[in-house]
């Protein structure tokens, strides 16, 4: 009994002694830290995604408190509201940024962009891109191994098994840019987020000439420039055989969508424009007929020749090409 008592008393004495020592040590070596850092960290979303450029939210909070000018710091996850709240708490001017959303600029679905070979190396876009062109004939398009999906910490990107392309859930996407960095083909772009998730964008990044694009993919931009002519806001430029819609200038008028012969300009969240409101021109009857007629029309006659030649070519060349590489599924 006595042994038990002594044991308990000794342990208690040791505990109290340690507590006293620890208290004085903690006082002596205390690190003075701005308490506002903790507060700011609480106000940040706490996703630790790295979208701001810091390793985590703590690093961002530290920088927000310590830097006088915080206009170059922005949390893409929290967005403008979060930044405003933090700025008013700290008494500094917040950076203003419009909301953005990750946009996958490739329309080469399994059906539009046939596979020419089968890859059986490591299942990673980065590895495949370091080795060769990919499973299809397009050197610019999505490889489909999902590096962007693996990079997303918000579960906002999923591979669609039907199309073989990644799809972004605009409600979950925080525009942290992790997928943009992960994509070796630079297909994903952060574009302006419109209300109701509306968007008009060129769903292709191929810089190949029109004929080469047509050979590899039926949904690619051939750089014909029809969209540039029809745009009233000067929002579209064609460079290196590729059209690009500037999201800052675009007003979502949707004229270019109807004009695109390959359907490379993608329309999201809206109905297409009604067919030709002004002059009832004869060839513009149905969208499908309009597309085929558009390719043959005069302004692009020279290009149409090459386009047709390319469209005819795969029929003869494909079998050899299909058989060639790796093994076929």
């Amino acid at each position: 009994m006595q042994v038990l008592l002594f044991t308990i008393l000794t342990l208690c004495a040791l505990g109290i002694l340690s507590a006293v020592i620890l208290y004085f040590v903690a006082q002596k070596f205390r690190v003075e830290e701005d308490p506002r850092i903790d507060e700011v960290e609480k106000m940040l979303p706490g996703a630790n995604c790295g979208g701001c450029g810091f390793a985590g939210c703590r690093g961002m909070a530290d920088a927000l408190v310590k830097q006088d000018d915080i206009s170059n710091l922005f949390c893409p996850v929290g967005g403008g509201d979060c930044m405003k709240a933090i700025a008013s708490y700290l008494g500094k001017a917040a950076a203003e940024k419009q909301p953005e959303v990750a946009t996958v600029r490739c329309g080469g679905t399994c059906e539009k962009r046939p596979r020419t070979n089968e890859y059986n190396g490591a299942r990673s876009c980065a590895v495949a891109a370091s080795l060769y062109v990919g499973e299809t004939g397009c050197a610019y398009g999505c490889l489909g191994f999902g590096d962007c999906v693996a990079a997303c910490t918000f579960d906002a990107i999923r591979m669609n098994p039907q199309t073989g392309l990644p799809e972004v859930d605009p409600d979950k996407c925080t525009a942290c840019g992790a997928c943009v960095k992960a994509c070796p083909k630079k297909i994903i772009e952060l574009r302006k987020k419109w209300p109701k998730n509306r968007a008009v964008y060129v769903s292709c990044v191929s810089k190949d000439k029109g004929a080469v694009v047509m050979k590899a993919c039926k949904a690619g931009c051939i750089g014909c420039g029809k969209c540039v002519k029809v745009c009233s806001f000067g929002a579209i430029i064609v460079e290196n055989n590729l059209a690009y819609i500037d999201p800052q200038k675009c007003k979502l008028c949707r004229k270019c969508v109807n004009e695109c012969p390959t359907g490379a300009i993608r329309l999201v969240g809206m109905d297409p424009l009604p067919k030709e409101p002004k002059t009832p021109a004869a060839p513009k009857a149905a969208p499908a007929a309009e597309k085929s007629a558009a390719v043959k029309s005069a302004p692009v006659a020279a290009k149409a020749e090459t386009v047709k030649a390319a469209a005819a070519a795969p029929a003869t060349e494909k079998p050899a090409a299909t058989q060639t590489p790796s093994k076929e599924s």
């Binding site: 020419t116 070979n117 060769y132 058989q323 060639t324 590489p325 093994k327």
Partner: peptide
């Protein structure tokens, strides 16, 4: 089949 530029150890598959 798989056509390799080079030998099977260090060659690169061709498309």
């Amino acid at each position: 089949c798989k056509v390799i530029n080079g030998g099977p150890m260090m060659g690169r598959a061709m498309v």
